[in-house]
Nucleic acid binder design. Structure first.
Lengths: 326, 326
DNA sequence: CTGAAAGCGCTTACAG
DNA sequence: CTGAAAGCGCTTACAG
């Protein structure tokens, strides 16, 4: 049978109150009493039941992370940043993926009501921002990761999408490229608008093809541009999957990258270093975003009031062979 | 203030016992009473506190997942399979990554003692098998994902590593290749020995270079083979990262893939379809492994006794351009 | 079919 | 510095 606080108290010849006090390292305990209690704790390998502590204290020392998918290319990095930070603070990390649609959302919502965790880190599943905002308003501490340019009414972590787009344009311009093809992700994403705006400021273009954040979309984008007889000397893809698709379509069309056409992506996912040629891309610091969001949330749980102004982390241009330095 | 079972009981004019009974859908409640209670529950948006239920019942309806890293290329798929299955069963998923070394292990161990979860899914962090086995012996339900050929003394899910190696060899042999270079991962992994044994049975070779499961290791392996003046017409890499490194080294050496040298990898991670040429590889069904392990564990929690005989899932050869069909 | 009471394993005023 | 008692929000014999 597992030891409880009552066992420890009995064997140490003190009350449960005293044991609780030494566990929570309050000062008002006689040193020799405390030492005796600690001995018994060690001897019994006693660890307080997290459930009981949570009930008594009204908090679970657990944080939840909500994601639309766990298989997105950059999700592992975010998760690792979150997990490391949360663990180091002695908190537990409860993972919710909304992969099963409405059912998943319901499951998650009921866990919120059940007070299964103290705070929430979220990468927004499609169309759930209102639900999340409502939870925040009702008192659940929330930090959003990757606001997609939407600037919600609660704390969030974002990256410099606009400056990221601009840095891609500057790099291409410095390499002597002047006629870009831009392949975007979904236009209703704020980050897409920001990346485009930053890019266009430096390197204006009317050759913009809207698409999805997929390889296929990148392939189709390039094919369509060729079919329309448009000419371009570089491609700015709104993420690395689109860029990978573009690379493939360019190779199939017999164009050399980067000699004929340079390609720049966005994100710097693991695939980026394995394409041929390896991809120049605007790196988003995903792990750091996870860490930052977790640290913010933990500070919030510690009583600090969090600003709803997004914390913005810097993107960084990573130069590889698809668009080398001039 | 949040509603409790006492609030529901008061407003419905019944005892907490009765409310508890309708919550847990026992039969011994008068239909009209039950209906009245349910109305109040809805009106108050009452959801039982998971902490209190857990304490009273002595179980948390939560499963833990322990991993060495969250950024490994196939981890997202495993995690998704686990999360979907666990969620669908109404359980919570507590995530532990041992990324911070000994500190992480300690944090995890204390959570075990704190009874923070009912069962454990584990992808073994380096050198923790004994610790895990000990937890299993003390009564914690455990299912291991990817036994690395070690056949532990508790339930596990594995893949057909030996047959996977054999299928790679058969494919190469059918394509007329007879002089393979094999690039292995760490030899102390059982899966490496199994893949090698299966391969060698069909296509014996003395050109085996041991390495790590990394891109660099693949590059070095090919370079070393060339430096030794060895000739080969195909490569069997023990995972896709090694294969990606091999592709790079072959290209730099001016060899055409697959015309001069065919390449087969193992795993089928996302990168595999983005190399040049795209990689033929032995697919491990990672998501299915996650699902299977989770289902096993849930069955165990449901009272079923689990066999310690590994559940073995089939690998599948995925043919792409690096080693096309004959 | 229903309820009073004890219990799960802790914490926390309160009193001394 | 220490302890008895109440309380956190549930479940579960037990009795009726």
């Amino acid at each position: 049978m597992r030891a409880t606080i009552a066992d420890v108290a009995r064997q140490a010849g003190v009350s449960k109150t005293t044991v609780s006090r030494v566990l929570n390292t309050r000062t008002e305990v006689d040193p020799s009493t405390a030492a005796r209690v600690r001995e018994v704790i060690d001897a019994l390998a006693y660890v307080p039941s997290s459930g009981a502590v949570g009930l008594a204290r009204g908090s679970s020392r657990t944080i939840a992370m909500l994601t639309p998918s766990l298989t997105w290319p950059w999700m592992g990095e975010v998760l690792q940043g979150v997990a490391d930070t949360v663990e180091a603070a002695g908190y537990g990390l409860l993972l919710f993926s909304c992969n099963r649609g409405a059912d998943s959302v319901r499951h998650f919502t009921s866990q919120v009501s059940a007070r299964a965790f103290d705070g929430l880190l979220v990468i927004e599943p499609e169309n759930t921002l209102d639900t999340i905002a409502e939870m925040y308003r009702r008192g659940l501490p929330v930090v959003l990761i990757d606001d997609r340019g939407r600037h919600p009414a609660f704390p969030s972590v974002a990256t410099t999408n606009r400056e990221g787009g601009a840095s891609a344009a500057r790099h291409l311009l410095e390499s002597g490229r002047t006629r870009p093809l831009v392949l975007t992700g979904r236009r209703d994403f704020g980050c897409v608008r920001d990346r485009l705006a930053g890019f266009s400021e430096i390197l204006p273009t009317d050759l913009v093809i809207d698409g999805e954040f997929t390889e296929e979309s990148g392939r189709h984008g390039v094919e369509r541009a060729f079919a329309q007889g448009r000419s371009f000397d570089c491609v700015f893809a709104h993420n690395d999957l689109i860029a990978a698709g573009a690379l493939r379509a360019l190779r199939e069309a017999g164009r050399d990258v980067p000699d004929d056409i340079a390609v720049v992506g966005f994100d710097d996912i693991p695939i980026a270093r394995h394409t041929e040629p390896p991809l120049t891309t605007v790196r988003q610091p995903m792990r750091q975003m996870g860490e930052t969001a977790a640290r913010l949330l933990l500070a919030g749980l510690g009583g600090k009031t969090l600003s709803t102004e997004p914390v913005v982390l810097r993107t960084e241009l990573v130069v590889r062979r698809s668009a080398p330095r001039p």
